[in-house]
Design a protein around this nucleic acid. Structure first.
Lengths: 210, 210
DNA sequence: CCCTTAATAGTCAGTACGACTATAAAAGGG
DNA sequence: CCCTTTTATAGTCGTACTGACTATTAAGGG
């Protein structure tokens, strides 16, 4: 999770989600994309998928004034080290589990975002947007495991992904050898499909073990 | 779908989704609830479930000024005849299929709302909120069929609903006879469950008939 | 008194899923 | 250079669930 340390009151010194205000002629998604680029120093935020989480409009969210926020979630495969933007003391990547005690109502926003992304992983091909252009099935599985927080059986995961037409397609003739410690894994690309039929369920189905 | 006929420019005479502006000290959900009450004349909108669809912030959505809208969807079991509120010429219930050509970007909002509610029907117990306090399984099935636009096999629907613990529970000792033309159906109430495990899939699974 | 309608009960074959075992192909350590 | 470790990939198997279908029951209508 990309967090920034606030430099000003309120909540000075506390960590918060990066954000900012709309310019007169941009949409909330364009604003979120611009803020993300300013915060990470990433050059090509234009191709990135931004998932709208929801809007937060309760009065009193910001003690200074009435603020309505629209939260977006983006997925970065190989994120660069962030550089703090304006009015932020520092910026840092933080694991989800340690990203608590945030300023404002950002704890809730972060939880909503995780739930939203996790649900989209079940029924859409969103997971490939989390991977580099060419990836192994092990990397794709790690996306699911880290967002869901659940270990998955590798052969079964493999079977279901490959059985879904258009989810992934093998790159013409390649296997990856350099860094790996075991047998080299085949490389795949994102396929043309956008929805997952049938959905990829969160493996250990809860509720009926007998 | 509850639609209002606009009495003022822009889009005078066109049908649109009901809506309004936030008061200084209310959240978007509170504002949506208030507007719904004003528009329908319904007394007890307080217990109604409001599902946030998403926010719409593109510049130029409203030709008069910059407007950011947060859309909500509510489900009314037995809706009363609406009465037009301020600056609306008329208000009317309209089937989803005929609710096209709306003012502003309301066609898109309506499609997003339908997709959102349809997705929530698969994985949550939201459908019971669409029914009266006591309902038959046939009525519950009609909720799914009308939102999804798909006919469902009645015995199979029945089996899955009853197999999900906490989804519905039978009312102590009753069957409904008066209006029905066939065999009287048993009455059920909403159960304590809130999530559906396993989810109730959109019956004819697309993609693998062989 | 039959015919229609709708609810409920039950059957059955195909299949997808989870759990598990086995093999292959690399790196590393002695 | 062999042996262990590690990881990817292949395959097996029994269970449980699903979708499609048929049958029975209980009302109302003509």
């Amino acid at each position: 999770m990309l967090l920034v340390e606030r430099g000003q009151e309120p909540y000075a010194g506390r960590w918060a989600l990066p954000g900012g205000f709309l310019l007169p002629e941009e949409s909330a998604e364009e604003a979120a994309r611009r803020e993300l680029g300013e915060e990470t120093g990433l050059a090509d935020v234009s191709g990135l998928h931004l998932e709208q989480v929801r809007a937060y409009s309760e009065p009193g969210r910001d003690p200074r004034m009435r603020v309505v926020s629209v939260a977006f979630a983006a997925l970065l495969p190989d994120p660069p080290e962030p550089r703090p933007g304006t009015d932020a003391a520092e910026a840092r990547w933080t694991p989800y589990e340690r990203a608590t005690g945030l300023a404002f109502d950002h704890d809730r926003i972060l939880a909503n975002a995780r739930a939203r992304v996790g649900a989209r992983l079940e029924s859409t091909c969103l997971a490939t947007a989390f991977c580099p252009p060419e990836f192994t099935l092990g990397e794709l599985q790690q996306v699911y495991e880290s967002v869901w927080g659940t270990p998955l059986d590798r052969p079964n995961f493999r079977r279901k992904v490959l059985a879904t037409p258009g989810f992934v397609e093998p790159v013409p003739g390649g296997a990856r050898l350099t860094g790996g410690r075991g047998k080299p894994a085949a490389l795949y690309r994102a396929g043309p499909a956008t929805a997952l039929h049938p959905p990829l369920p969160r493996t250990p189905r809860e509720g009926h073990p007998a």
